[in-house]
Simulated scan of single mutants.
Amino acid sequence: MSKGPIVATAENVTRQVLSHHPELMVVAFCFEREGSNDALHDHPHARSTYVESGRYRFTLGEEEHELGPGDRLTIPPGTTRGCVCLEPGTFIDCFTP
């Protein structure tokens, strides 16, 4: 199965579906510039994020977490989330669509 197309989601931010199944989706998010962001939003499903490269400040509800290469976090369902890129790179999200 081939990867999905690279799609812009915000200024200097792209996403690419790496794997998709009705019960699981794996997506790479690439941030090209410091200060690029993934605006605050929420989803009805749990999410797991793994930082492949770069540095990010994630907001989960009222908490902030700074993550770099090899770091990971789990986001509970319905939690408001977003992130700001501190150093360009890529993180991988896994979730049930």
Rank of each mutant, 00 (worst) to 15 (best):
F29N: 08
A28H: 09
L24M: 10
P22S: 14
D38R: 04
V17R: 06
E11S: 07
V27C: 05
T9C: 04
R15D: 02
D38L: 14
T14V: 07
L40V: 11
G35R: 05
L40N: 07
V13A: 01
T9E: 07
T14M: 07
H45E: 05
P22M: 02
S19N: 09
S48G: 04
A39C: 05
R15F: 01
D42A: 12
V13C: 01
R57K: 13
N12W: 11
H21T: 15
H43N: 12
A46G: 07
P22L: 02
L40I: 12
T14E: 05
E23T: 15
L18R: 14
H43Y: 13
A8F: 08
H21P: 00
R33D: 04
E34T: 15
N12E: 01
Y50D: 03
T14L: 03
S36F: 12
D38V: 06
A39V: 12
A28F: 03
G35K: 04
Q16A: 05
R47I: 14
E23K: 11
R47E: 15
L40A: 11
L18M: 14
L40F: 07
P44N: 14
H20E: 15
D38G: 10
R55K: 13
A28E: 14
S36P: 06
V17I: 15
E23F: 03
I6G: 00
A8H: 06
H20I: 05
I6A: 01
G54P: 01
P22C: 08
E32L: 07
P5Q: 12
P5W: 04
A39H: 13
C30W: 00
Y56W: 10
V7N: 08
F29K: 01
T14W: 06
E52S: 09
E32I: 02
F58L: 13
T49R: 07
T49D: 04
E32S: 06
A39Y: 15
F31L: 09
H21I: 02
N12I: 00
N37T: 09
Y56D: 08
T14C: 03
D42C: 12
T14F: 06
M25E: 13
L18I: 11
V17M: 08
D42S: 12
V13I: 09
A46S: 05
S48I: 08
N37P: 01
A8S: 09
V27Y: 03
V7I: 13
R47D: 09
T49A: 08
L40H: 10
A46Q: 09
S53I: 05
N37W: 03
R33A: 10
S48N: 04
H41D: 02
F31A: 11
N12S: 03
Y50F: 13
R15A: 05
P22V: 10
G35M: 08
P22Q: 09
E32N: 04
P44L: 01
E23Y: 02
R33I: 00
V51Y: 06
R55E: 13
A8L: 08
